[in-house]
Design a protein around this nucleic acid. Structure first.
Length: 964
RNA sequence: GGGCCGGUAGCUCAGUUGGUUAGAGCGCACCCCUGAUAAGGGUGAGGUCGCAAGUUCGAAUCUUGCUCGGCCCA
């Protein structure tokens, strides 16, 4: 060795060369890639290229067009895009048409809010103008969201999306509604809704706000007239408690809790029934017994221990004893309606938190009341009008407003008191009560006529449901069983929801939406069913949108066969879920998007859509077509914050997708989508995104290394059987990876897909294959067979990996592709799944090389202590002695250039023990010893070999390479 | 309150029919290289598997209860 500076052979080494930058700069780069895709019409060219192939159709569930997209939208659309691109990669013709839900309440609100700011009253505005403003508002947000979705790299027919407010769509919605009407499943019924007497309109739950009010609370007695379980208690008085005295005049029944105990208290001629836990509170309100010696109202204990003069201890009865009992309304002496019997009904909603454990039921004015009464054949009375005023002919309260009759000395209390039915009344009960979001006025529940779709066979009717005599519920349940669910648990969830759901209420008393285009006969109440009339209605809507119904010349629509004067046109608006429930009709079937067809291969939405779109689409399609509009349903969970809490603006824990895109790039967001387990609720936060960015960089650098190694060459393909074992092992691993990726793609399991890809790129390639082959790649002659084999494998790996990555890292894969194959209009997304030669699979080789890698680990582990004590620096400086007790392992190591694999100077493998060798902790039957090598270092390849020339300081191999 | 679901290293995820010392990648710490260099290689430290009972020779895995969180409903 000389003291002179070693010759510099750097220029003779074949280092990786690429212009592909290590730093991604995605936020800046991605918009340019999007422009390229748009300008070169990649989506359209894909359609042409895949024409005639098997189709795979994802039908887009429409987001609501009323604001910027949030992380949930980003997740949903990205999952869709990954699925579509994956299907495309696998050779399917997978078109994608995005859509928007445009009708409905939230948009109406926004417009009304604008009116309020301008001090305009909505009722003064022409409905047509109002609807036009709603339309413009929706269109604005469609455009905004479209740009935001496209920025995520979502591929589809963005220049031709579907909108539920398109005239054509509105026409099909009407057409579908009329089909449902014609199926015999549509009926008019009633239902209590939140009603504002001030605005004289129904309100949705979201329009309601709760404020504290002080109400009159009253305790009222209903004398029991029939008591089958306990006949001796006939004449006892059931006590009910209410904070809405105005509902007493329309009482129809009394609910009790079957699981509760009730006490019968008082003397034989005047006994009260109250739930046991509530007796104490009742006795304080209604002083039905003399005060005790302390001057207080008697307590339950006083009663139980007989401390009240002449009052016997209470009798306990079970709630179930009330079955079949019947009471009289306290005003029964007025006759008529009031004289009818009031049955006791078991109600699951009855609690012992307040009141008396007995609940008076007014089906007109309460949801629980309505439902329980309906189950027992008791109908509402409809005696409160739109303004909240009783019909003038109703006894006691006729002509009064419901809010004007509640005073302690008002007509209700007075009448009850006069009839001996009032035990207590005080205007001092403070509680939370619903108010109108707009007018701040108090609300009431009020039964209103609504249109329903019947889920079950009509009781007692033979029906006219066409050839399919099953009920809608039966059809839907059968279709659910035929559907594939990802994840599987969605099956149970949707099924149980459909099993338990009530009839579908289609009507809404609103303005912005598609009308229920029905003519109701004024005398019979039946709606008109006439194909010719229906055809004219549909044609009118197709021509002028849903407005056509509100501004219609109804006589013209009805034609000569009917007189407009005989019919009332319905002005209700369809539930927006009906709109989106018909997208399969106006998108998949319409022919406007000829690539699409029904049923779809997949609907992909958040788990909240089990209640929403999955169900409305299923029911609509089953009602009109007898089958589901989809073959498979994929559901994703909700995105929570970094701590697993729900994201909300008020908590300030939301993650804005735009911020991630602007700071890190859409590919980072896409990679996050693939990395998390979307089948469950999952999290997002700074730390998580940083972690994803780190993983991205690792993958990106693997591509960069491949690009550098391959340079601008296109290596000749070398048959595997002429390659070294290491290359054959790499190809074998590729077959395994390919199989795993295919399975993961088939299962929509992007988490495992991505992990498989990353581990292959990281653990197998970067830290092993590339590391070992660096020497050959950099230093061997350009025509060296080993080097050529390596390049051939790298070329194969490049083509496989870039395609595998493309559906997830859509932008980066394109950048990688363009870096190697620059062109004006080519795209990695036009390529198909790589063809991996099945003959590359070699299980025996895999077993052998797994062992070799484990033994390589033994060596690297043994080198580490010498490195720490600075005995050696590079592993190239190590001489390794490896003792193996297992003959097979010994044979394996001897059959390869193990020093090359372990990147050390020399390896002495032997079966017999050697001094200083220590047992390898991670490998039974292996002992290892590492010494610093005495061999000289080649100045070019930096390996320590026996043949380094003292003059040139080159090893034999390098002398040959640099010779000319 | 009801239906469904989940809680495994700092983070994202694996954990097969219950069976040795619960794994991977990333991050972190330390070391090496300086010819993938705002890269690359190596070594290592991190977990009483949400908590508590129970079944079992044996539980992250099965049962029950509790708790925290989510979706839907009331």
């Amino acid at each position: 060795m000389t003291d002179a500076t070693p010759p510099d052979y750097r220029d003779t080494v074949f280092l990786p060369k690429t212009n592909f930058p290590m730093k991604a700069g995605l936020a800046q780069k991605e918009p340019g890639i999007l422009d390229r895709w748009r300008n070169t019409k990649v989506y359209e060219r894909l359609r042409a290229a895949r024409r005639g192939r098997a189709t795979w159709i994802l039908h887009d569930g429409p987001p609501y067009a009323n604001g910027d997209i949030h992380i949930g939208h980003a997740l949903n659309k990205t999952l869709k895009d990954i699925a579509v691109r994956m299907a495309t990669l696998r050779g399917f013709d997978a078109p994608y048409t995005p859509g928007w839900d445009c009708h409905g309440l939230p948009i109406e609100w926004k417009i009304e809010e604008q009116y309020r700011k301008k001090k305009r009253d909505k009722r003064e505005v022409d409905p047509i103008e109002f609807r036009r403003e709603c339309r413009e508002f929706a269109q604005k947000w469609v455009d905004v969201q479209s740009a935001q979705f496209q920025r995520l790299g979502i591929m589809g027919t963005w220049d031709q999306p579907y909108l539920t407010m398109d005239y054509e769509a509105e026409a099909v919605i009407v057409e579908e509604f009329l089909k449902v009407a014609g199926s015999g499943r549509l009926y008019q019924g009633a239902k209590p809704v939140m009603w504002s007497p001030v605005e004289q309109t129904a309100l949705a739950e979201a329009e309601v706000e709760y404020q504290d009010v002080t109400s009159t609370q009253i305790d009222v007695v209903f004398e029991i007239s029939e008591f089958p379980e306990v006949p001796e208690l006939v004449g006892a008085k059931a006590v009910i408690w209410t904070t809405t005295p105005w509902t007493i005049p329309v009482n129809r029944a009394i609910a009790y809790g079957e699981a509760f105990d009730y006490l019968v208290i008082g003397k034989e001629d005047c006994r009260y029934i109250v739930a046991e836990p509530l007796v104490g509170a009742f006795l304080k309100r209604a002083e039905v017994f003399p005060r005790n010696e302390d001057g207080d109202p008697p307590s339950l204990e006083d009663l139980l221990f007989g401390k009240i003069a002449d009052v016997p201890p209470p009798i306990l009865i079970k709630g179930t004893a009330l079955e079949g009992a019947v009471a009289r309304h306290p005003l029964h002496e007025l006759g008529g309606f009031y004289a009818e019997p009031r049955p006791f009904l078991p109600g699951e909603f009855v609690t012992t938190e307040s009141g008396t454990g007995l609940v008076h039921l007014a089906p007109d004015h309460g949801e629980d009341d309505f439902r329980l009464c309906k189950e027992h054949g008791i109908d509402p009375m409809f005696v409160v009008d739109e303004a909240g005023v009783y019909h003038t002919d109703w006894p006691v309260v006729g002509g009064h407003h419901v809010y004007k009759v509640n005073a302690v000395d008002g007509p209700v209390c007075s009448a009850l008191s006069g009839a001996g039915g009032l035990l207590a009344a005080t205007a001092d009960y403070t509680h939370s009560y619903p108010h109108s979001w707009r007018s701040k006025a108090k609300l009431i529940y009020r039964c209103t006529p609504q249109w329903f779709v019947r889920m079950d066979a009509e009781a007692g009717a033979d029906g006219d449901a066409g050839p399919d005599t099953r009920s809608l519920r039966e059809i839907a349940l059968a279709e659910i069983d035929k559907t594939r669910f990802v994840p599987e648990r969605g099956h149970k969830r949707l099924k149980s929801m459909v099993e338990g759901r009530p009839d579908w209420v289609l009507s809404r008393q609103r303005a912005w939406g598609v009308p229920l285009t029905l003519y109701v006969h004024k005398e019979s109440g039946a709606f008109l069913q006439d194909d010719a009339v229906n055809a004219r209605i549909v044609a009118a809507v197709r021509e002028g949108g849903a407005d056509a119904w509100f501004a219609a010349d109804h006589q013209a629509l009805l034609g000569d066969a009917y007189k407009a004067a005989d019919y009332t046109p319905v002005t209700d608006i369809l539930d927006v879920w009906f709109d989106s429930g018909t997208t399969h009709a106006f998108v998949l079937e319409s022919g406007k998007w000829p690539d699409l067809s029904s049923p779809a291969d997949l609907y992909l939405e958040g788990s909240d859509q089990h209640r929403g779109w999955f169900q409305s689409s299923l029911l609509e399609s089953c009602a009109t077509r007898g089958h589901a509009p989809y073959k498979a349903l994929l559901t994703h969970g909700m995105t929570l914050d970094k701590n697993g809490r729900k994201q909300s603006k008020s908590l300030g824990n939301t993650t804005d997708p735009k911020k991630i895109i602007d700071a890190q790039g859409a590919d980072i967001l896409r990679m996050w989508v693939a990395a998390v387990d979307y089948t469950e609720d999952h999290r997002i936060g700074d730390e998580i995104i940083t972690g994803i960015a780190d993983r991205y960089r690792k993958l990106r650098n693997t591509f960069r290394y491949l690009l550098g190694a391959l340079g601008d060459t296109t290596p000749d393909v070398m048959p595997a059987d002429r390659m070294p074992e290491l290359e054959r092992w790499a190809l074998h691993r590729l077959t395994e990876v390919d199989t795993k990726l295919r399975a993961a793609a088939e299962a929509y399991d992007w988490t495992s897909y991505l992990v498989t890809l990353e581990q292959f790129a990281g653990a197998d390639l970067s830290s092993f294959y590339f590391d070992v082959r660096k020497d050959s790649l950099y230093c061997d002659a350009l025509d060296d067979p080993k080097r050529l084999a390596c390049l051939s494998v790298m070329d194969t790996l490049f083509h496989a990996l870039v395609r595998y990555a493309a559906p997830i890292l859509a932008f980066t894969a394109e950048e990688v592709w363009q870096s190697r194959f620059p062109s004006d209009d080519d795209s990695v997304h036009l390529k198909e799944w790589p063809e991996i030669d099945a003959a590359w699979a070699d299980e025996a080789l895999a077993v052998k090389w797994e062992r070799l890698r484990a033994l390589r680990g033994v060596v690297t582990e043994a080198i580490e202590p010498l490195r720490r004590e600075k005995t050696i620096r590079s592993s190239n400086e190590a001489d390794v002695a490896l003792v193996l007790s297992d003959a097979e392992a010994l044979g394996d190591v001897k059959s390869v250039d193990f020093a090359e694999l372990a990147i050390v100077s020399r390896v002495d493998v032997r079966a017999d023990a050697i001094g200083g060798a220590e047992a390898a902790p991670a490998y039974d039957g292996a002992w290892v010893r590492v010494d610093p090598t005495e061999l000289e270092k080649c100045a070019r390849c930096w390996r320590h070999t026996p043949d380094v020339d003292t003059g040139t300081q080159l090893c034999g191999r390098c002398r040959d390479v640099v010779k000319p």
